[in-house]
């Protein structure tokens, strides 16, 4: 059925938390996206591919600059499908696309979901609240794409349930008030949030993202009862650091992702 759902079920059975790794598609260059994604996929359980956008309001400096690099390197929304196809040849893990709403809207929601279904599994749109999401959910469902919505520390209790009802695959818990970006510590609010979602809905696994950058953070999140943990900016920073030297980048990424994955084992 759903590749994402199966992955979470399987990990649950083996007592692990899902390690979801984010990278910006096209950063530093579209040609490097398949090898980078493949390296990450050796350790990650789910891969999340960002589509660059000119005005990423939910992102901190790290992902903003990655977005700018990718756009400069010629990354375009329709190229994401070629890249997914190339990555699909190398790995079976679920591929989730994260994009701001306007590029998808402009491409055509139905057309986007159809193409995404060729090798992708889910969609995250950080500036699309459930109130505006009926078309996206409809066409995603029609094409077997999971829709992952976000829950924030400011989301009222009754709304958490509504968001879960709109979500499939997993639900994305934002660990803090703020934009994406590596932080030194994990905020305390996330524990209450995890508890609240787990109590309300047994059927949809909560994965936690924003600010998580170290294996210790991952362990902390795992202990709080989350079913998945999302690391983005820390990976993007590593890619930025070694962007000129793929021969250094790939082993460095593998080492980092191996450590993050190891921390998800309970």
């Amino acid at each position: 059925m759903s590749r994402i759902r199966d992955t979470f079920l399987e990990l649950e059975r083996s007592g692990e938390c899902a390690f979801i790794a984010y990278m910006m598609a096209g950063d530093p260059d579209p040609s490097l996206t398949p090898p980078i994604a493949t390296a990450i996929a050796r350790y990650a359980d789910v891969i999340e591919l960002g589509i660059p956008f000119s005005d990423p309001i939910a992102d901190g400096k790290t992902i903003q600059t990655a977005s700018e690099r990718a756009l400069k390197a010629g990354m375009r929304p329709d190229k994401i499908f070629e890249l997914i196809a190339a990555i699909r040849k190398e790995t079976d893990i679920p591929i989730v696309v994260m994009s701001y709403y306007n590029p998808i809207l402009h491409f055509g929601i139905e057309r986007f979901m159809k193409r995404l279904a060729e090798g992708g599994d889910g969609i995250i749109i950080p500036d699309l609240p459930i109130e505006e999401a009926d078309d996206v959910v409809w066409y995603a469902k029609e094409n077997g794409i999971d829709t992952i919505f976000l829950i924030a520390p400011t989301t009222p209790e009754e709304r958490i349930e509504q968001i879960c009802a709109y979500s499939s695959g997993f639900v994305y818990l934002v660990s803090l008030l703020g934009v994406t970006g590596a932080r030194e510590t994990i905020s305390g609010v996330v524990k209450t949030l995890i508890k609240s979602v787990v109590e309300k809905r047994q059927d949809i696994p909560p994965a936690v993202g924003f600010g998580i950058s170290k294996p210790e953070h991952v362990q902390e999140i795992v202990k709080s009862g989350a079913k998945g943990v999302i690391v983005g900016s820390a990976i993007v920073e590593l890619i930025a650091k070694h962007k000129a030297k793929p021969e250094v980048l790939i082993p460095a990424l593998e080492e980092f992702c191996a450590a993050l994955k190891a921390a998800t084992r309970r």
Partner: peptide
């Protein structure tokens, strides 16, 4: 309202 969930409330 096309904003991150944090702002909806």
């Amino acid at each position: 309202q096309f904003v991150p969930e944090v702002l909806m409330h």
